[in-house]
Amino acid sequence: MSVTLMQGLLIALFAIIAGIDFWLEGFYIFRPMIVCTVTGAILGNLTLGIIAGGLTELAFAGLTPVGGTQPPNPIMAGVMTVVLAYTTGKTPATAIGLALPFSVLMQYIILFYYSAFSVLTKKLDTYAANGETKKFTRLALLPTWIVALSYGLIAFLCVYGAQEPMRALVNSMPTWLSHGFEIAGSILPAVGFGLLLKSMLKAEYVPYLLLGFTAACFIKFGNLMPVAVIGVALAFIEYYHNKRSMDNEKKIKTMIDNAGGNGDDSDGI
């Protein structure tokens, strides 16, 4: 069975909505469970969609966008699993594997966007510095629209018309290029930290930065909680230390004031 133009357009429209949802992580309709079901409904085979949804959801269960990483794209995986099972008559389980190149294609587009959108922050800095909230809002939403359109376009091309060229494109992408995207992604946060240090770092805080860095290097743990706890401990040490010296200063000051007062009284003697 083949996909009609109308069905292709409907799937593209749904990919746009799910794409925005994945970008913002809103209602989780980007998970294969929902994507497959809706795609199946559009193609007129709801049961196929639901079954494929269950299988693909489990296959993608471990692939989560945690900490700014980007797994193979669940939307394109869901859409293409159902479309390929529908058009080729293969089982959903087989179709999951065949859908993978399309999922990887979208993954790399998003990875590229993560790097590319870094360029917008400078302009947003300017708008923020002038307190221009309207312009800021417009520009801060622009990436979402760009991503949405990309989903619509890629989904339409993959579903209707250009399936083979798309598969060839993914297979011909050199590994150094895709690897380069990944490397750029893992180095670019350094620019963000450089900017953060520019506004926060004073010479007196450098020791704490080094302590936090060293702690994170040697404490192997899933998140930064141990480093934060060390930071809290250091902050409290300094807090109580300063508070004590401030209280002492106050005491000394009142003592001096009192002493000074007595001195005046006894001046005549």
């Binding site: 700014g68 893992s186 180095i187 946060p189 350094a190 930290f193 953060l196 240090l197 926060m200 770092l201 004073k202 805080y205 450098v206 704490y208 930065l209 080094l210 302590l211 936090g212 860095f213 060293t214 702690a215 994170a216 290097c217 930064l224 480093v227 934060a228 060390i230 930071g231 809290v232 250091l234 902050a235 409290f236 300094e238 807090y239 300063n242």
Partner: peptide
């Protein structure tokens, strides 16, 4: 104290994110 906490965590962030 908040700045100390912030800078300690930034140190940790550099080690884990970059």
């Amino acid at each position: 104290a908040a700045s100390i906490l912030g800078c300690t965590v930034i140190g940790g962030l550099i080690a884990t994110y970059v």
